[in-house]
């Protein structure tokens, strides 16, 4: 298989979108499981966080994760630009979007780019400080819980997870379809699983933020 031909093709690009999408969805599950240790108190979270920061397997997968994000974002933007230009210069004067194209499917690029903004904020506030933190002065637990004392930060955090829920409410089942998995016998199940997934992820992260905001 000629690699360049595959990734240049419409179906190849969608395959990459779906593969990276799946990977990011697994990552979110892992990330949330670690965050849930926050409820276990300072020691529990710091131990979980320490494990993540030192385990060689996790360390290697961090690079894969970064590559996954970059590929997902790169191809997402590329698809958006190509798809815009495929319509041609003149667009419809009247279009009944609500009759045929669901809102979440129509706004993937916008929810995606806003998630990217949050991602950058998150890198600056958590990922990088955690990497270079002097844990003798303050631990990961404090780093996280301090942030949720700030109401503005907490609100931004909550909005980000609403956007992610919208992104995933289309993305989850869409990724299966891109991989060629669709059949009337099991697609309704995949759709239900997707609803369960995005509620679990978004409620999980949001509950943590709210808990520490109100706990202070």
């Amino acid at each position: 298989m000629e690699q360049s031909k595959f990734t240049a093709s419409s179906i190849g690009k969608k395959f990459l979108m779906a593969a990276t999408g799946f990977f990011l969805m697994v990552f979110l599950l892992v990330h949330l499981s670690v965050n849930l240790f926050l409820f276990g108190g300072k020691q529990a979270f710091n131990e979980a966080s320490h494990f993540m920061a030192t385990n060689p397997l996790i360390q290697i997968s961090q690079y894969i994760l970064a590559a996954g994000f970059i590929a997902h974002i790169f191809f997402g933007i590329k698809l958006y630009i190509q798809n815009k230009s495929a319509r041609g210069k003149v667009t419809y004067a009247v279009n009944q979007w609500q009759a045929h194209t669901p809102f979440n499917a129509r706004t993937m690029i916008y929810t995606g780019l806003l998630i990217l903004c949050f991602l950058i904020l998150h890198l600056k506030d958590f990922t990088i400080p955690i990497k270079i933190a002097d844990t003798r002065r303050f631990t990961h637990y404090e780093l996280v819980t301090e942030h949720f004392k700030n109401p503005i930060y907490t609100v931004i955090y909550l909005i980000a997870f609403i956007l992610l829920a919208i992104h995933l409410s289309h993305g989850f089942q869409s990724a299966f379809q891109s991989m060629g998995a669709r059949h009337k016998s099991y697609t309704p199940f995949i759709e239900k699983l997707g609803v369960l997934y995005f509620w679990f992820i978004s409620l999980g992260f949001s509950t943590i933020a709210l808990w520490f905001f109100f706990k202070q």
Partner: peptide, 13 residues
Amino acid sequence: DEEGFGNCSNTGA
């Protein structure tokens, strides 16, 4: 692809 059609976003429209 060569004809310039767009890519599928699985919107179902």
